[in-house]
Design a protein around this nucleic acid. Structure first.
Lengths: 342, 342
DNA sequence: TTGAAAGCGCTAACAA
DNA sequence: TTGTTAGCGCTTTCAA
C-alpha cells in the first residue's frame, strides 16, 4: 500500500503536522527535524496525495483550457503554448473541447461548480456577462485568448491592423480587385479583420464592393474558420468569371487552404492569376507557401497561463488587455517574393 | 459560500448519507425522499465537490494522456479522438506533453505517485519494464497508442503491411529506384515500416540499396518524425544526381512535407520527377495533395480511451493488441491519380 | 518548534 | 430505507 503522511510521521518519530511542515517548506521547523523527516520520506518513497492536498488546501493546482479543439491547427498551436507554460509553472492542464460554440457555457458551469480547477482559459470562445459575474463571485479567474470581454484579461492580436496590413500589401502589388473571404461576424476577430480590410481599401481609394466579400454561411459552417468555408468562398468568387478578383485576403490560413484548393481545381495559378494572403501563420501556412499575417500563437498561450497564475495570486490586478502586434510573413502566394513555386 | 452536502441535508431534513445516496443513484432510497433531496439540491444550486468525491471514492474520474504534443499534427489528431471519447465517457482529460522522449518516465512517476488520475494513455512513447511493473502494482492501467509493450494494451496500425502496400504501389507505377526516408529505428513504427519497405522490394525482386535509405540522424532530429528530417533526407537523396530515386516512400506525412519542400526547391516536379507516398494521412496530407497510408488516428484515440475505461473496470482482461489495418489514399503526389496539380 | 486535533466535503460501512 | 459515524490523506489552527 502507498505510504501516507502517518507512515512518514511514525517512521521519523514526529507528528503529522511536522511532516506537513517539512513538505511545504514551512519556516516553523528546525533543519534538524526537517532532515529527519525528509529521510523518512525518501525511505518510504512517499509522495503527497494530490487530491487530499487539494481538498485541504482548497486549491487544486489544475487549470482548464476550454478550446474548440476539434476545429483545427490554429487551436493546437495555442494549446501547445498553454501546455508548455502550465508544465513550467507546475500546473496540470485539463483539456476541455467544445465543438459547438453554444456548449461553452455548459463546460463553464461544470468547471465552476465541480471546483476541479483554480482557473480557466477560454480560447476563441464567447462568454456571457452572467457567467463572468458567476466566476467573479466564485473567485475563479478566467483569461481569454483570441477573444474579448471588457471585464476579463484577454490576449489577442491586432486584428484590424493585421487585416489592414494584409490588404495594403496586396494593394501595393498593384491589385485593384481585392476580395475578402471572412468567417462569421459574430466572431470578434472576424469582425475586426473585415474592418481593417475595408479601411485599407478606403485609404487607397478603392471602393468596397459587396460581391468581393464572402462571409461564410451561418447554418453550415459553424463559425466559418475552416477549410470548407474557404473553399466555398473561393468558388463563389470564381463564379464572377472575368470580373473575379485578382487578389484575396482570407481571414484564416485554414480557410486559405480551402481557397487554394478551389483555385487549383479551377485551373488557375497562385499567385499569377490570384494572389492570396491569409491570417494566423499556423505551421500549415509554411507548407502551403502561403503568405499570411503572423500571430504568435504559442507565445499567446504561454502568456495566458502566466497571466492566469498571476491573477490567481492576486485577484485585484487591473484587467489586462494585451494585444500582440502582427506582421506579414511573405511567402510565394501573394506574388511579392522573388521565389516562385516551381 | 458554496453549498455542501450538509446544507442540502439540513434543507431536505435528512442525513448526509441520504443525500449521497440521492446523488449517486443508490437503490437504497425511496423515490419519495430522493425527490425531496433533489429539490433541495436544485434550490441550493448544489454540486458535489469533485476533489472531495475523489478522495472518498479513491477514484478521480480523470485520465492522463502523455503525448509528445509539441511535435506536430499527428499527435493532435490522436488527442482529438482521446478528448472526444473522454468527454463522452464523462472523464476529464489531463494533458501532459513530453518534448524529449526520455522525460516520459518522469511524467509516469509523477502520474503514479500523485494519484491524480485513474488511468494513463501513452502516445508514441516507450515505457520500461520496470515502470510497467510499478503501474501494475499500483493498479493504474495504461493503454499504449502507436506503441507496443507485450504486457500492455496497445492500439497500433499495421505498420509493416502499410509500408509494404505503399512501396508496392510505387512499384506498380513502374518505379525501380525507390527510396525510403525513415525516422529513427528506436521507434517501433519506424522499424516496422522499414521492414515492410524492404519486403516489398524483395518480393518485386528489386535489390535494396543502402544509398536509397535515409534514416534521420539521432542527435539532431529527436525521433526523426518531423519536417526537417524529411527535408534533410530528401536533400541527401537529391545529391545522388542522375542516380536519384524516381519515387520515395516517406515514413510520415510531416516528413513528406519537408521532402516536398526539398524537391520543389530543387526545381523538380511531383510526381513527374519524383513520386511520393507518405504515412499517417493527417489533415495536412490532403492540403498537400499527398498520397499516403491512412491511419484512423481519431478512431485510435477513441478506442484507447474506451479500452482504458474497460480495463479500469476490470483489471483482469486479457491484453488487447489491436492493430488497425491501413489503406492507401491516392492523391496526386504518387502519380497514380487521373487528376494532377495544375 | 512541535504535537494533537479539527476540519476540507465527500463515501460507505454499520446500526437502527 | 435511513441516520450516524468513521474514514479518505492532507493542512492548519491551537496549545503546549
Amino acid at each position: 500500500m502507498r505510504a501516507t503522511i502517518y507512515d512518514v510521521a511514525k517512521k521519523a518519530g514526529v507528528g503529522i503536522g511536522t511532516v506537513s511542515r517539512a513538505i511545504n517548506d514551512s519556516p516553523r521547523i528546525t533543519s534538524e527535524t526537517k532532515e529527519k523527516v525528509l529521510k523518512a520520506i525518501r525511505d518510504l518513497n512517499y509522495q503527497p496525495h494530490a487530491m487530499a492536498q487539494s481538498l485541504a488546501r482548497k486549491k487544486t493546482n489544475m487549470i482548464a483550457a476550454i478550446v474548440p479543439f476539434i476545429r483545427g491547427y490554429f487551436y493546437m498551436e495555442v494549446v501547445k503554448g498553454i501546455q508548455f507554460e502550465a508544465t513550467q509553472s507546475n500546473y496540470d492542464l485539463l483539456l476541455y473541447s467544445v465543438d459547438e460554440f453554444d456548449k461553452t457555457e455548459e463546460f463553464l458551469r461544470k468547471t465552476l461548480r465541480e471546483r476541479r480547477v483554480d482557473g480557466v482559459l477560454l480560447i476563441s470562445l464567447q462568454i456571457s456577462d452572467i457567467k463572468v459575474k458567476k466566476f467573479r463571485n466564485a473567485n475563479v479567474p478566467i483569461v481569454l485568448v483570441d477573444g474579448f470581454h471588457p471585464q476579463l484579461d484577454s490576449i489577442t492580436v491586432e486584428n484590424q491592423e493585421g487585416a489592414y496590413i494584409a490588404t495594403e500589401h496586396l494593394i501595393r502589388q498593384g491589385h485593384k480587385k481585392i476580395a475578402m473571404i471572412d468567417a462569421q461576424l459574430k466572431s470578434i476577430p472576424a469582425k475586426d479583420r473585415l474592418f481593417g480590410y475595408k479601411k485599407a481599401l478606403k485609404d487607397a481609394r478603392i471602393i468596397f464592393q459587396d460581391k468581393y466579400l464572402f462571409i461564410s454561411n451561418l447554418a453550415i459552417e459553424k463559425d466559418g474558420f475552416n477549410c470548407e468555408a474557404g473553399y466555398e468562398g473561393m468558388k463563389r468568387l470564381l463564379e464572377l468569371g472575368e470580373d473575379r478578383p485578382t487578389a484575396v485576403f482570407v481571414s484564416s490560413d485554414i480557410q486559405a487552404a480551402g481557397a487554394i484548393k478551389a483555385i487549383k481545381e479551377h485551373g488557375l495559378r497562385i499567385p499569377d492569376d490570384i494572389a492570396i494572403v491569409g491570417f494566423d501563420d499556423i505551421e500549415l501556412a509554411e507548407y502551403l507557401d502561403l503568405s499570411t499575417m503572423h500571430q504568435p500563437l504559442f507565445e499567446m498561450g504561454r502568456l495566458a497561463v502566466r497571466r492566469l497564475i498571476d491573477r490567481m495570486a492576486d485577484k485585484k490586478l487591473d484587467v489586462l488587455q494585451k494585444q500582440f502586434s502582427t506582421h506579414i510573413v511573405v511567402r510565394s502566394s501573394c506574388g511579392a517574393s522573388a521565389r516562385r513555386i516551381a
